[in-house]
């Protein structure tokens, strides 16, 4: 889906020409130029050796579960095969009448929105700072900021649960230190504050990757644009808006789409570790609610229905944002 930009990469464009050559014209295995001078039977055996075992595994452990998940969503099923009952669209009716579902959706999109805003502003700021303003120790910052990206969500979640701990936590101790005891609260235990509290760890853990992506974009911008802008009397702020931002728009777009996908498909992991969906469903997102329905309450059919909803919503969201952020490629 994001492949439209790969044309910029030399290797890939070579590859795609090769593929497109192959797609038109006669079956390519008849071509003399093919390096394998051998009978087509041998070639098929080799091809089968390369492709078939992997593809079978992929079908069994990826395609089949996805499609049968779709199928399960039409059943009422508590796990034992004997009492699996076809119920048609009942699960979907239940989905639309379940008061918790709209909340999980809102929570998910709240996380998507706050993560996009928080991560993009901070990553852009840091990326410009580290590339444009010749800072000697820039590699140090880059290495440090990226590290949380490869930490396990469990470690991140537990660490931040501690930071928010009402009595020992860093946040409340810090507020006390600053004389703001009145602001201290049980962050993860509060229905109002639990969900916003999950945003900070997500930004903390996510920023590095997008920082690197944006830095890559900025360092590809030719210095001559900035020189030209400088001659025209543009301030650094104007340069940022008129030169940097339009030229790294592709990287920004990919980053935003990537945040959307990873949040809708993965925010529940942090939720599961930090709050388990509580207090009183205040932090349940679609994925954690699916886990609760399917694997804690054994409503597997209904769980699958939630899964279908996640799939549909994330596809719609990605397509919508691709449409929203489409922009003519800028060239000066």
């Amino acid at each position: 889906m994001l492949r439209e930009y790969t044309g910029a990469d030399e290797n890939d464009s070579i590859r795609w020409t090769k593929v497109s050559e192959m797609m038109d014209g006669k079956p390519s295995f008849l071509r003399k130029s093919d390096w394998m001078v051998q009978s087509s039977k041998q070639k098929y055996i080799f091809l089968a050796f390369c492709l078939v075992p992997t593809f079978i595994m992929f079908c069994i452990f990826t395609l089949y579960p996805l499609f049968s998940g779709l199928y399960y969503s039409f059943f009422d099923w508590s796990g034992a095969s004997a009492n699996r009952e076809f119920v048609g669209f009942d699960n979907y009716v239940r989905l639309f009448n379940d008061a918790i579902i709209p909340r999980t959706i809102i929570h998910d999109y709240f996380l998507v929105a706050t993560k996009i805003i928080g991560i993009m502003i901070m990553a852009l700021f840091f990326a410009v700072a580290l590339t444009q303003l010749k800072i000697k120790e820039a590699p140090f910052y880059r290495i440090v900021f990226f590290f949380p990206n490869i930490m396990s969500v469990v470690v991140i979640g537990i660490l931040w649960t501690f930071i928010y701990n009402p009595s020992m936590g860093l946040v409340n101790s810090g507020l006390e230190f600053l004389g703001l005891e009145s602001l201290a609260r049980p962050w993860l235990g509060s229905e109002t504050w639990a969900l916003p509290s999950l945003v900070l760890p997500s930004i903390w853990a996510g920023i590095g990757l997008f920082l690197l992506m944006l830095m890559g974009g900025i360092s590809n911008i030719s210095k001559s644009y900035y020189e030209a802008a400088e001659i025209d009397g543009a301030t650094e702020w104007q340069q940022f808006w008129k030169v940097t931002l339009p030229l790294i728009w592709p990287q920004i777009k990919i980053s935003v789409l990537y945040i959307i996908i990873t949040t809708l498909n993965g925010s529940f992991i942090l939720v599961q570790v930090m709050t388990g969906g509580g207090p009183n469903n205040a932090t349940h997102v679609m994925g954690s609610y699916l886990y609760q329905q399917a694997f804690e309450q054994y409503n597997f059919g209904y769980g699958a229905t939630i899964g279908v909803m996640i799939l549909v919503l994330s596809l719609i969201t990605v397509l919508f944002f691709q449409f929203l952020m489409r922009r003519e490629k800028v060239e000066y």
């Binding site: 889906m1 579960p65 779709l70 699958a304 799939l311």
Partner: peptide
């Protein structure tokens, strides 16, 4: 087609697949 199939699996939320995978 095969390449596209593999790559598009990167974008699909696998949560849905985990329920059948459990029984598989």
């Amino acid at each position: 087609f095969l390449f596209t199939l593999y790559i598009s699996a990167m974008m699909i939320p696998m949560v849905l697949g985990w329920i059948p995978l459990f029984f598989l």
